[in-house]
Design a protein around this nucleic acid. Structure first.
Length: 983
RNA sequence: GGGCGGUUAGCUCAGUUGGCUAGAGCGCGUGCUCGACACGCACGAGGUCAGAGGUUCAAGUCCUCUACCGCCCA
């Protein structure tokens, strides 16, 4: 005899054993040679977690959902590839390591040579990559582990070089002087999406600027105009003051000159429609705060930059890269002592000093409280400084002529986005319906972003990342151009006018280290910046498969199928993958984008380190088990935006206090139930003989559970196809716990003691258990595999001869998804059992109401109409078994015995005999009567409404009539009994 | 400022195209230690579906407005 399942479900043991099995057998490996006529490929690429830190619960959710999808498809016999890996996360990782080294060693990045510092980050990456991959395995993620990639490994680096070169050659990469989002703390540029907007309680300062010559306005001598600003320190770089031409004062003032305080610079008053007209009564806050005069600082404000371009204003940068006031970066008229005093001050110090100066000079007219949005670095959290800087850009709306044949040309309808521009390549598939968001509403985020897309700044002043493969040299050196001319295929170059004259920039194609060396030997300098992290992330779906090489993996698994991610990176990441997928690999990288919810704590706050409300997946796995965690996460995944997960502290044996959630109990309880039900089933499978099965001998409970199984199988399959997660789990929960455990297993117990019925029951039991495990496997893979392995020992063949063939597998993870079993569906049987269940519940209710011990066998009878009575009589045994009856009689017009308690079930009256508590019975009947009367009144008034009868669908009216009749009968019965009791 | 989501039982959430007396899990109450499971079994209590108005024979569901909570973008 084989050993049974252990009595207690121990998640840790099962998870360890099962993981060993899976990994030793390489079940998750996807082989490019296998897909063909019969077998199709199915691909999901993991959103590569950042190597900055260990995974949190959001990752657990994200990866659980991906695993459910990939396991489902693998069981559906797709060649399913889940590509794993991690992301170097440039700025984020570098910042984390910088902070740690500063805290532990008191050293800054600049204290290290570049190579050495990068090595330190590499070490951090190695540590966290190991942690992360370990976490994913602990969660049960069925990734193709040997394929694991890292965005900076050799394979990905090659793709980055190839993609960059292609863009450069197509003229899509350019160097531009632009106002960028500058983070003075980390001293790097941030993309628009990396800027977080926070509302700040700040001030509007009203500064008076003197006119060079006083001006008479409507008879009044005017010596000053007043500008309002939230950032007074930028006034040092003002090169004009603008006013709206519609302002009545404009005709007197436009063209006049001002003397800029502190600096003494003479600047003009210009007319620009961008300026908001003052209006104290306006709804618009800006109009209420406006003076009508806008100081224009082109070097330090994006709007002013635009105004400056329109009016050809000078651009004066007054700050050093660290955000301090400086005359070394473009400010040349800092001669006045007041101005020189400010040099070297931090921007916020300078703000205070300048406001103070205005106050002392009586030029500070007013200070008003003002709440406004200020951009902050998502990394260092300091306010962003708009800053003038040379950066590399990718042109996103420029038509790419060599793609017009494949992708067409002209504009995407209703936009200024050319079809064959990068933005167009990403936008068009959505509009064509080839790219789909689930839930659909997120398509709008994607679409709007692409329609309003600005060029993508891709250089970052960091050390950790893909170094930009561009070398430069001044053209004044006469050799420069000649040096390039014989390298045409391996190098592409452009010439740019810079402050230092003409400079040649050469991009070297990948795999030409010799060229790089020879250029450097001749004085060419490699760009010291690295690429935006999202550049390599954008290539992830194909760089991981070996692009630009035409590898078998790339041919088989690209384009992929599903991307599963959070909504916050729809713009940053999803759109860029589509863009680059189209541009580099010629097709969209996936068809379906599933956007899942964000996990919040019980109060609806984001989980974060600073709030201390995060949950470590490994802690949840430790406290409840990986399957329990997955079950709970999946069951909470509906298509809402947020998931609330109450957080509770827990003390570990070692005394540490950590967070977990009572929500995981739901999953743990389910797993425990599954374990025990399986254990019970297997205890009864000894001597199972598939050959002895005879479909003709199925009893009604068998036919019922098979029908329910078939229905559940179809529902779950449909739900998963539609990217539902909570729904299929709910269906399985109900089927397994309510149908299978509460009813079928209870009924099967007695049949197991009877040799006549045992053979059939055993076969059905084994079959249903097997199918149930398979349906549950994508959600809770460990426990289902553990039980399946045992089932393979105990009952190697699970088939129902003539109904369902055996399709065994050595592991459930590679077992086929249960086949459609439509012939097993039997609505008539389901209806009969439903009725049986109603009767059983009614009797249990009476038992409970009259405090009859569960062990006490009762006698009952049922007065039911002929058809119903016949059905019930046929199932007498089932009712007696689960209602605890020793005797049950069912017939039409059966009189009510004395001392019986009554329950009404549809058209039938159920009598439980020898219950002697007339008082309680009368109260019950009274209550019942009221309920029925109330329901009856509702239906009656509906039917009394002529409009309802005339306009509602006929079947609805018929239904109402039927209902009324039933209620009338019930009322009659109840009234009869009630009267009886009363007498 | 623009966009999106939410508000249903004490809690966390379901509720398809409008149609039986609005469901589940947890929690709560009562009773169960009968040979799988107390992480369990049975039964039960608990809801003016945020508010107002409208469409309709019929509204949790569709429309309008309001309030509150939250997210994304500028």
């Amino acid at each position: 005899m084989t050993e049974q399942l252990s009595k207690v479900y121990d998640s840790k043991t099962v998870e360890r054993q099962v993981n060993e099995l899976w990994l030793s057998k390489s079940y998750f490996h996807a082989e490019p040679s296998r897909p063909g006529q019969k077998r199709k490929a199915f691909t999901i690429v993991i959103p590569p977690p950042n190597v900055t830190a260990a995974l949190h619960l959001g990752h657990a959710l994200n990866n659980t959902l991906q695993d459910i999808l990939i396991r489902f498809r693998r069981m559906e016999q797709y060649e399913a590839l889940w590509m794993p890996g991690t992301d170097h996360a440039g700025i984020a990782t570098q910042t984390v390591v910088e902070k740690r080294i500063l805290a532990e060693e008191g050293k800054r990045r600049t204290d290290f040579p570049r190579e050495e510092f990068v090595k330190r980050i590499q070490a951090w990456k190695d540590e966290y990559e190991t942690t992360i991959l370990g976490q994913l395995k602990a969660m049960g993620c069925s990734c193709d582990w040997p394929r694991t990639r890292f965005t900076m490994d050799e394979v990905c680096a090659k793709a980055v070089r190839a993609a960059f070169f292609k863009l450069f050659k197509d003229g899509l990469i350019y160097r531009g002087k632009r106002l960028v989002n500058w983070d003075p703390a980390t001293q790097t540029v941030l993309a628009d999406d990396e800027v977080e907007h926070e509302t700040i309680q700040g001030f509007f300062w009203y500064l008076k600027y003197p006119l060079v010559e006083p001006v008479e306005i409507d008879g009044r001598q005017t010596e000053h105009i007043t500008v309002a600003t939230t950032r007074p320190e930028t006034m040092l770089g003002d090169t004009a003051v603008a006013m709206n031409p519609a302002d009545p004062r404009a005709k007197y003032l436009v063209g006049k000159m001002l003397r800029l305080p502190i600096v003494g610079r003479i600047i003009p008053i210009i007319a620009d429609e961008h300026v908001v007209l003052p209006n104290p009564q306006s709804e618009d806050e800006k109009a209420r705060f406006s003076t009508g005069f806008l100081k224009v600082t082109p070097a330090h404000d994006p709007d002013d930059w635009e105004i400056g371009k329109r009016h050809n204003l000078a651009v004066i940068n007054i700050m050093a890269p660290d955000g301090s006031i400086s005359d070394k970066y473009g400010w040349q008229d800092a001669a006045a002592p007041e101005a020189r005093n400010l040099l070297g001050m931090d921007r916020f110090e300078a703000r205070d000093a300048i406001v103070e100066w205005f106050r002392q000079e009586n030029l500070l007219e007013e200070v008003r409280d003002y709440a406004h949005e200020v951009g902050h670095s998502y990394r260092s959290h300091v306010p962003i400084e708009p800053y003038l800087s040379d950066q590399w850009y990718v042109s996103v709306k420029q038509p790419i002529p060599n793609l017009s044949q494949k992708f067409g040309q002209g504009l995407v309808e209703g936009t200024d986005v050319p079809v064959n521009s990068l933005a167009g390549l990403a936008l068009k598939p959505l509009l064509d319906g080839r790219l789909r968001f689930i839930p659909e509403r997120y398509a709008k985020t994607y679409q709007t972003w692409l329609e309003n897309l600005r060029d993508w700044p891709i250089s970052r002043q960091l050390w950790w990342g893909h170094r930009i493969p561009v070398w430069s040299k001044s053209v004044r050196d006469t050799d420069t151009i000649r040096e390039l001319s014989n390298l045409s295929e391996r190098v592409h170059s452009i010439t740019v006018d810079t402050d230092e004259g003409q400079v040649a920039f050469a991009c070297v194609a990948p795999g030409n280290e010799d060229v790089e060396k020879s250029l450097e030997a001749r004085g060419w300098k490699r760009d010291s910046d690295v690429l935006d992290t999202w550049f390599s992330s954008a290539l992830w779906p194909f760089s991981t498969l070996g692009w630009p090489e035409e590898t078998p993996a790339l041919r088989t698994f690209y384009p992929g199928d599903v991307l599963c991610t959070a909504r916050e990176i729809i713009t940053l990441w999803v759109s860029r993958m589509v863009m680059m997928g189209q541009y580099c690999a010629g097709d969209i990288p996936f068809r379906d984008v599933y956007i899942h919810a964000m996990i919040q704590d019980g109060e609806g706050r984001k989980m974060s380190k600073s709030l201390g409300n995060g949950i470590d997946p490994l802690i949840a796995i430790d406290s409840h088990g990986a399957d329990a965690m997955r079950f709970t996460l999946a069951t909470m995944t509906t298509d809402t935006q947020d998931i609330r997960m109450p957080v509770a502290a827990m003390t570990l044996p070692d005394g540490r206090t950590v967070n977990t959630s009572p929500k995981f109990d739901v999953g743990r309880n389910f797993c425990n139930k599954l374990w025990n039900a399986s254990r019970f089933a297997m205890m009864n499978l000894e001597g199972l003989d598939p050959a002895g099965f005879d479909a003709a001998k199925l009893d009604i409970s068998d036919r019922w559970i098979l029908s329910r199984l078939a229905a559940t199988r179809d529902e779950v399959t449909n739900s998963l196809n539609a990217f539902k997660f909570s729904e299929p789990l709910g269906q399985l929960y109900h089927f397994f716990w309510n149908d299978f455990c509460d009813w079928y297993l209870e009924w099967v117990k007695s049949r197991m003691r009877d040799d006549q019925s045992k053979a059939v029951a055993q076969n059905v039991l084994a079959f249903v258990l097997d199918s149930t495990l398979r349906l549950l496997h994508p959600f809770i893979p460990f426990i289902t595999e553990g039980i399946y392995q045992k089932l393979n020992e105990m009952a190697p063949v699970r088939e129902l001869k003539g109904i369902a063939a055996a399709d065994r597998a050595e592991a459930i993870t590679v077992a086929p998804w249960p086949a459609g079993t439509r012939p097993m569906r039997d609505p008539a049987v389901e209806e009969q059992i439903r009725l049986v269940q109603e009767i059983v519940r009614a009797i249990r209710d009476l038992r409970s109401q009259y405090n009859l011990a569960p062990s006490e066998k009762l006698t009952a009878s049922i007065n039911a109409p002929k058809a119903m009575g016949d059905a019930l009589s046929a199932n007498n045994g089932l009712i007696c078994q689960l209602a605890g009856l020793s005797e049950l009689q069912t017939a039409e017009n059966l009189p009510k015995p004395n001392n019986a308690a009554t329950a009404l079930v549809e058209g039938a009256q159920v009598y439980v005999h020898n219950v002697i508590d007339p008082e309680a019975e009368r109260a019950r009947l009274e209550k019942h009567k009221q309920e029925i009367e109330q329901a009856k009144k509702a239906v009656e008034s509906k039917l009394a409404n002529a409009n309802f009868v005339a306009k509602a669908k006929p079947e609805v009216v018929a239904q109402a009539r039927e209902k009324l009749q039933q209620l009338q009968e019930q009322l009659k019965a109840v009234e009869g009994h009630w009267a009886e009791r009363k007498s």
